[in-house]
Design a protein around this nucleic acid. Structure first.
Lengths: 252, 252
DNA sequence: CGTAGCCTTGAGATGCATCAAGCATTGTGG
DNA sequence: CCACAATGCTTGATGCATCTCAAGGCTACG
């Protein structure tokens, strides 16, 4: 419930010399800046408000349920999970976030965060104060539109997770998960067919609505079939086409 | 893929005399207008762009996957479902919409609709042309903020559905569904403990990730226990507290 | 080097899906 | 207005996918 930005030691104001280029030029702020083709003079304005950074160590949270919502966060480096918890203590991972992705939209509705955001490795985020973001979005239409696009994309992503949770079998879910991660790593410029998982089997299971044993068994089965190689958290996708077939095996 | 607004016979321009009051004063446009406490002069602007209506008969669709996105829709009267479909033909209902709620946010990201929206009874919607909505949101901060709140609320709603699909047992899901409908009817000024379902068992099942037989059995069981009375689509909630207990029966 | 967390694998239990049959309700055309 | 067809709903019997419980091995970190 506290205002962490004010208190956090790891929050730092960038030197103004840096800030012109730093935030949106060097930063992987793909989601907000890149797709709109935002011109340089507007990037400067954005830079001005995105000048704050914050480091979050592995296992620590960026924000927690109930905290006052003030900012969105753009992942610069690292890896996060978001987690929702019900009254009676059930929880579910609602997403994993990689560099370039935005966090915190759940807080806009109620002005309080509705999920926990937890770093799965040492990470760094850009802080985007939400009031200021709304202000410059009013003056600058492409940014406004881009902001709406990102929120809409999150809605669409969640609808697809609902489809996965509501209709797919365990192995199909795991295959879809592996391919989704692959696609996102590729998009970041990393290898699409070989990566290191940042989350545990139990976290994968929580996201997919499965128990960790079921995730493990799916991995083992794919490995027997020669579709993947899984040594702990090291994953190689040997037959991506076979994985794709698994999730689109025409059900009436 | 067609531009229905232009072609539809049931779309009608309101008389300008009416339009001053009609759209946001008489209309149940709760989500966008009411919570912000939007002043009358701004309501006039909103009215100007919301002057178009459209009727959708039971069973017909308001929009379909792949259609060009141009507008959001506010349900004035009636009842809708939204449905997502995967490549291989699996589908899932992603939500039910009652009067006052907005439809179509999934289209903003890609400029094409990602779900089908289908009327479950004869319905009427207000058409909110999206470009114009963005334009006046730029000039009028409370509307901008309200728009963001509504999108955020949709994100939060979907996260809660993910939690339901990922962690709850069949009867818990059905109980949660009945209570959720109850709450929304209450909010519309109807009885909270007695209502008529507008959707089939199979549609409820699709939304909850269950088969229709399982939904039916849950209803029957609740009825045996005296918690509800279910005669076809007529539902009475006799013991709301018991229903609430069902969904928060402390799981470790 | 030791310990705690993480992962794998097996065996058995169970909740939900599937298949099937009959009943109820709604809408339609005679 | 009635008869009938189509659609929706309920209930039972059976099968199977995934969970649960358990044990042992692996890995990473202090």
């Amino acid at each position: 419930m506290e205002d962490r930005e004010a208190a956090s030691v790891s929050t730092q104001k960038l030197h103004s010399m840096d800030s012109l280029k730093a935030a949106c030029a060097n930063c992987n702020l793909r989601e907000l800046c890149v797709p709109g083709g935002i011109p340089i003079e507007e990037l400067v304005k954005l830079d001005a408000i995105v000048a704050m950074r914050r480091r979050v160590k592995r296992g620590e949270s960026l924000f927690n349920v109930g905290e006052k919502f003030r900012s969105l966060y753009a992942v610069r480096t690292g890896f996060f999970k978001t987690r929702i918890t019900s009254n009676d203590g059930r929880d579910q991972i609602t997403g994993f976030q990689v560099p370039g992705e935005l966090l915190g939209f759940d807080g806009v509705a109620t002005e309080h965060h509705g999920v926990d955001a937890i770093a799965l490795e040492d990470s760094e985020v850009c802080i985007l104060p939400y009031n200021e973001l709304e202000r410059i979005a009013r003056d600058f239409q492409p940014l406004q539109h881009q902001l709406h696009r990102v929120m809409s994309r999150e809605i669409v992503r969640e609808q697809n997770v609902m489809l996965l949770l509501g209709t797919m079998k365990a192995e199909e879910r795991v295959a879809a998960f592996l391919l989704n991660l692959s696609e996102r790593y590729r998009h970041l410029g990393y290898a699409a067919n070989e990566y290191v998982l940042r989350m545990t089997r139990q976290e994968i299971g929580s996201y997919l609505g499965l128990k960790l044993e079921t995730v493990s068994r799916s991995f083992s089965k794919f490995q027997e079939q020669g579709i993947i190689e899984a040594r702990g958290k090291n994953i190689k996708l040997l037959k991506m086409e076979a994985l794709r077939k698994l999730i689109s095996a025409t059900k009436s």
